[in-house]
Design a protein around this nucleic acid. Structure first.
Lengths: 149, 149
DNA sequence: CTCATATTGTTGCAAGTGTAACAATATCTT
DNA sequence: AAGATATTGTTACACTTGCAACAATATGAG
């Protein structure tokens, strides 16, 4: 029976490694939407959710993008100011505001998603399809286990 | 030849998925060192690096933990205030301060690394050894490709 | 040896963030 | 129907962050 030496190394610690990879990828993609389109990360996420779902409320954006309500609120303001998104009060529940992209917003969204897909393909090119889908599954399992548990 | 519909879904977008998983895991582990030991994430990272390498400079911590110099500076102050770490001016280069754990810091470090290892095992239990190492490799490949490229 | 340049660690400041409080509205209980 | 409770989106405030500037020191060029 062996007595294993248990020396700790931060760089091999999974939470740290995950964070580094996530940060690296996020920053790389952020360079695209930030420098070229002036969007912050919260703005990009909110933008993506509205573009994807057509008409949503702030609360829905919050849930689907795992962002704080206040973050969403500010992102929505900014996107509205920039003319990508418009809001309209819900008639059935007047607390709620329905959000959707403006025509220009829709066009910008098409461009952004194209960029996102190119970026995704870049990752596939690095990893290969098989590893990519293994990675996805691993991430899903991890998220499921540790999300607000 | 098929014309593929290219609908974008944020939740399937790799950068977003990576971030969610990383955040979930980090928060789960943070609950341990934060609530029980009052450490912030930068503090935990700096702590781990000093504990692992024995004697290091702030610049080295910065490099090994991928944290901004100012973040390290503030984390080191805090760890020093809490008595886990002490600094001493380098004799050969007086700009430099050598940092190392105090005896109490060393003890705390042993406790923290034990917790980290337990946490790591929890992840292994979720994923299985094989998937775990596949995941690690995927993350390494991604980081290599996208880090400050 | 001297002056220009680089490096180390800290700090000022502006921007971003989360928690808690809030007003407006909706829903539930009786 | 009335009052208590919950939900939506915004805002105030305190805290964290990164960039740029900084003083102190070291290194390099001539």
């Amino acid at each position: 029976m062996l007595c294993e030496k248990t020396e700790f190394a931060l760089e091999d610690f999974m939470p740290y490694r995950l964070n580094r990879a996530a940060e690296a990828v996020s920053l790389a993609f952020a360079r695209i939407y930030k420098e070229k389109y002036g969007l912050s990360r919260p703005e990009w996420r909110a933008f993506a959710i509205v573009g994807q779902f057509g008409t949503v409320t702030a609360t829905e954006i919050s849930a689907k993008s795992t962002m704080d309500r206040t973050k969403v609120s500010r992102a929505v303001f900014s996107l509205e100011d920039q003319g990508w998104l418009k809001r309209s009060q819900d008639v059935k529940d007047r607390r709620v505001e329905n959000l959707e992209l403006t025509p220009q917003g829709r066009k910008k969204f098409e461009t952004l998603t194209k960029l996102a897909q190119l970026f995704e393909e870049e990752i596939v090119a690095v990893l290969g399809r098989k590893n990519m889908s293994d990675l996805q599954n691993g991430l899903i399992a991890i998220e499921k286990e540790f999300l607000q548990e």
